[in-house]
């Protein structure tokens, strides 16, 4: 690892000030489960770490509009097992518990989860070209191993996929990311605008600005506790990243769809959702036929790169399966 300095921030303002005042690369550290991983592989090479665990961001609280605010430093485990999350947002709870291992969930924080980086083999191996790690060096995955890579929204510069399960559920739930920084103060970023597609800047993964800190994630009032499903398709039944994951949430009036959300993981550089396509199915019957048509539209334009070709039919089948399970709940 790098020869880093380590400080612990006492409060949010102090943390941001510290971050802005340091010379060299600064990283906030919450759980550290992804950052230390990448530092040990020398993919991330910060000069300073600022521990944010002492900030008052470790609560889960109700919001004025009837939603829930998940503190940025609450662990994934405490969030997933939180009574209100389990009851009102079971989709989120289920997705979070499908991720990583018990130990990692006991450490990883909500803020950090949003910032976790791709599992692309070439991103992790500093001896190979990677535009994300070293802009301009090329993408080794295009003609290399790309079994776990993106089929949607990718670019010629990067076909990496986003590894989070939590973010997929958050995308389906229309959560909002709360951030604060020196220049712009407090601001909210809708989850769908938080992560970016790779384009020609795959090294820029989110719309978080330099020195900005995630303080929390706000869940809206609607949590789809009745009709939801999270299906994670992977190469090992536990402790493996998603090849394809689907977060499905529905609201039904009898057999009629009144609201429908489908977010996909493992298929793109960010959690993949198409709200405009979902809206076409409002008022339609919650039938297998409609689910199949919807799946077709959601995956429209998908491209395989060899090893990951199987994800295209798999994603469609998994969408239909998730929706079917959701209405059967």
């Amino acid at each position: 690892m790098n020869n880093i300095s380590f400080t612990r921030a006492e409060n949010i303002e102090g943390a941001i000030k510290k971050a802005n005042n340091k010379q060299g690369k600064v990283k906030f550290i919450g759980g550290g489960t992804n950052l230390l991983d990448l530092m040990k592989y020398r993919v991330e090479n910060p000069d300073h770490l600022i521990d944010i665990n002492e900030l008052k961001l470790s609560k889960i609280e109700s919001t004025e509009v009837g939603g829930l605010l998940l503190g940025a430093t609450v662990t994934n485990a405490d969030t997933a097992y939180h009574e209100e999350v389990e009851q009102r947002y079971p989709l989120l709870s289920k997705a979070m518990l499908a991720a990583a291992s018990t130990q990692l969930r006991n450490m990883a924080t909500n803020g950090g989860n949003l910032l976790q980086r791709t599992r692309c083999y070439y991103f992790y191996d500093t001896s190979t070209p990677c535009n994300k790690r070293e802009p301009g060096s090329g993408c080794s995955a295009l003609e290399g191993f790309n079994r776990i890579h993106a089929i949607l929204g990718e670019s010629e510069h990067c076909i990496a996929s986003h590894p989070s399960d939590m973010a997929v559920a958050l995308a389906a739930l229309d959560a909002t990311v709360k951030v604060t920084g020196e220049e712009e103060g407090h601001r909210s970023i809708p989850i769908l605008e938080f992560h970016r597609l790779p384009g020609d800047t795959p090294h820029i993964e989110t719309n978080l600005k330099d020195g900005e800190l995630i303080t929390g994630i706000e869940l809206p009032k609607k949590g789809f506790p009745e009709h939801y499903a999270y299906i994670k398709v992977r190469d090992r039944p536990s402790y493996a990243f998603a090849l394809v994951s689907v977060a499905a949430a529905l609201e039904l009036d009898g057999e009629e769809i009144t609201d429908i959300r489908i977010a996909l993981g493992g298929v793109a550089h960010k959690p993949w959702r198409k709200p405009e396509v979902e809206k076409e199915y409002y008022g339609k019957k919650a039938s297998r036929e409609n689910f199949e048509a919807l799946a077709e539209k959601l995956i429209e334009g998908a491209t395989g790169y060899g090893d990951n070709d199987f994800k295209i039919p798999l994603a469609k089948k998994t969408i239909v399966r998730a929706l079917t399970e959701a209405i059967e709940k």
């Binding site: 992790y124 039944p237 536990s238 402790y239």
Partner: peptide, 17 residues
């Protein structure tokens, strides 16, 4: 080069298997 030279991507059986 072995591209999955770690236990996250070189899968061995875990409890759930």
């Amino acid at each position: 080069r072995i591209m999955n030279a770690n236990l996250a991507e070189y899968h061995v059986a875990v409890h759930a298997d």
